[in-house]
């Protein structure tokens, strides 16, 4: 069953047509990959899905609910989470606070409850701290918890961005190049983590240039070119197709991973 349906999405920036009628579906429980040359519109599509850009035409449906043009916080509330390609962390806040901020439905985040329902949110905070600890352990940085996020290295920032998305416990996780700028060993770890999340029932939609990783883990691949889907199918079928080479990989031979 399709968890996310994108139908005929178009997006123009002035005279530049970036998205030109994108159609795709992400099946529930799958790890779906989106690949394509630089400038083909992948990140723009993610931004449209998450409400950061308003599309000029088309629909985005999540569980048969129309979420087209929702502001980002409502898209999040519908059950999605998004990890940016370039981490957008809160650099003067601690790593711990960065993670906890992503948790859903915190009572203490409302003005009156923060002041007058202290007992309730204080209890909640202790549980969130435990949960955040679990995530930081997964990312191998519990020792950094009370440091400001600005002191993290580039790779750790990427991991924290993903960790934040995990804290959100989404039904659908959108990841924009999680393995970019991360060492090969760590990148593999990220993908193994994603595979485990998929087993837990989280659907993952991912932009990635690291084909060696993506093709091993993905259930389905979409190839994007010039603002539209050029090719789709299971990884094996896509890598067999000559279009895949002419558009993206650039060599007319079978991709060997």
């Amino acid at each position: 069953m399709a968890l996310l349906t994108v139908e005929g999405i178009t997006k123009r920036f002035g005279g530049l047509q970036v998205l030109n009628g994108v159609d795709l579906t992400v099946a529930e429980g799958s790890l779906t990959g989106l690949v394509g040359p630089n400038g083909s519109g992948k990140t723009t599509l993610f931004n449209v899905i998450f409400g950061l850009y308003r599309p000029d035409g088309g629909f985005v449906r999540f569980r048969d609910r129309d979420i087209t043009g929702f502001p980002p916080y409502k898209v999040y509330q519908a059950g999605l989470a998004f990890a940016f390609q370039l981490p957008r962390l809160f650099y003067r806040l601690t790593v711990l606070d960065n993670v906890i901020l992503a948790a859903r439905r915190q009572r203490g985040e409302s003005f009156w409850a923060a002041l007058f329902a202290r007992r309730a949110w204080r209890r909640e905070e202790r549980d969130l701290a435990e949960k955040a600890y679990g995530i930081l352990e997964l990312l191998e940085m519990p020792h950094m918890a009370l440091k400001p996020a600005g002191e993290l290295s580039g790779g750790q920032r990427k991991l924290l961005e993903i960790g934040r998305a995990l804290m959100a416990e989404p039904e659908l996780l959108l990841l924009d190049e999680p393995a970019a700028g991360v060492s090969p060993a760590l990148a593999l770890k990220v993908y193994e983590l994603l595979a485990r999340l998929r087993e837990k029932g989280i659907t993952i939609f991912i932009i990635e240039h690291r084909l060696d990783l993506l093709l091993n883990f993905a259930d389905r691949i979409y190839l994007m070119d010039k603002g539209a889907i050029a090719l789709s199918g299971p990884p094996a079928a896509v890598t067999e197709d000559p279009v895949f080479y002419s558009v993206y990989v650039g060599e007319h031979r079978k991709w060997v991973s």
Binding site: F50, L52, P71, P72, Y73, Y76, Q77, A81, F82, F84, R88, L89, F90, Y91, R92, L93, D97, I100, L101, A102, R104, Q106, R107, G108, E109, S110, F111, A113, A114, L115, R118, W121, E125, R164, A168
Partner: peptide
């Protein structure tokens, strides 16, 4: 007010309010 989850959101808004939206607030 500041030493609560509410205050945490405020500081996050100061740092990056687009990221705050993406985290559902």
């Amino acid at each position: 007010l500041i030493n609560t989850p509410y205050g945490r959101v405020l500081r996050a808004i100061r740092e990056d309010d687009v990221a705050v939206q993406v985290l559902g607030k």
